[in-house]
């Protein structure tokens, strides 16, 4: 049975048994190069679920809202299961309200991989043993893995998820094809001045559409600090400095929650490398506090706890 069929079967079971009210998964997009989030509510609709290399969205972003109308099942890739772990630990959702359908895929397509194709002519995108097959009127072209997949997928080990109710796909641990932090290391070679110049360039592009925030499962606040009108921390002007303030704060708020799912960067229409910051945060959290976002249900949220022997600014 293909992963897709298996998923449909499981979704049908969950819905017909009444265990969940809705299954959040992927459906066909408006064109074969895209898929789109769908909310499946009846067993019949489960046949609309798809699973292919275009299934990129992090669907866990919908959970805090969705659980309000009853128990939910959600399709989540390994990095996204970690977002669920954090949402549960931070009391945004209850574990018993979510059925986690953990799917380990070979990898998700990065949009740039299609640059050479006439997108109007792409009929289908599917997984092949060594990469992704793009079907056009000319037949199939296979894009090799390292060109086809998103960076986060190339560095994924598909490690066992901390929580999962249903597991689909190949969960054998695999060797990452790329070093996850290569870009962080490269960036850190810059001098302080160069770093600030780099971000000045990046943040001057930001148009404050807040897609990064809206797409992020860690940004679940009812009212974001930047939307407050009475107490203005980050001015709404789009000068690089105000944008810096917005992003710095967002990074501090998602520290310890950011699982490196990459949705913020993917959603950003201005191509700002937001995950560079997120990745550094996760390295720092590991180095200073020894935890990793979403890897265990036991660790307390990183800023919601302390140890008396935490790293100290002036150790005796």
């Amino acid at each position: 049975m293909s992963m897709e069929q298996e998923l449909r079967e499981k979704a049908k079971e969950l819905l017909s048994s009444g265990k969940v009210k809705v299954v959040i998964g992927y459906g066909e997009g408006s064109i074969p190069i895209k898929s789109t989030p769908i909310f499946v509510k009846t067993p019949e609709q489960a046949d609309c679920l798809v699973l292919n290399p275009t299934c990129t969205n992090n669907l866990t972003v919908y959970l805090p809202q969705a659980v309000k109308s009853g128990p939910v099942a959600v399709v989540a890739k390994p990095c996204e299961v970690k977002n669920i772990v954090e949402l549960v630990k931070e009391n945004q959702i209850k574990r018993e309200d979510v059925t986690v359908i953990a799917v380990s895929t070979p990898g998700i397509l990065n949009d740039a991989a299609l640059a050479e194709f006439d997108l109007l002519d792409v009929k289908k995108i599917s997984w092949k043993a060594d990469g992704v097959a793009v079907t056009t009127s000319q037949g199939d072209t296979v894009i090799p893995r390292d060109a086809a997949f998103q960076k986060k997928c190339l560095s994924c080990t598909a490690a066992q998820p901390a929580i999962a109710d249903i597991k689909i796909g190949d969960w054998a641990e695999r060797a990452p094809l790329q070093d996850k932090f290569a870009d962080v290391e490269e960036y850190e070679k810059l001098s302080a001045e160069e770093k600030r110049a780099f971000w000045a360039g990046q943040f001057s592009k930001c148009i404050r559409c807040y897609a990064c925030r809206q797409a992020c499962p860690g940004c679940y606040c009812n009212e974001c600090f930047v939307d407050k009108n009475g107490q203005i921390w980050a001015s709404k002007d789009t000068g690089a400095e105000s944008n810096w303030f917005f992003h710095m704060t967002r990074m501090m708020h998602t520290a310890g929650r950011c699982t490196g799912c990459g949705e913020c960067e993917r959603a950003c229409p201005m191509g700002i490398p937001l995950s560079l910051m997120g990745k550094k945060m996760s390295l720092l959290v590991k180095e200073l506090f020894g935890t990793q976002p979403g890897e265990s249900m036991e660790d307390a949220p990183v800023f919601g706890c302390y140890q008396t022997n935490d790293p100290d600014p002036c150790p005796e």
Partner: peptide
């Protein structure tokens, strides 16, 4: 509404959108 994220990408990339604060 179920899937819309409520971001501003669509409007901010649109050449005819013109709303301001």
């Amino acid at each position: 509404a179920e899937k819309c994220l409520g971001c501003g990408v669509c409007a901010y990339s649109c050449p005819t959108c013109h709303c301001f604060d």
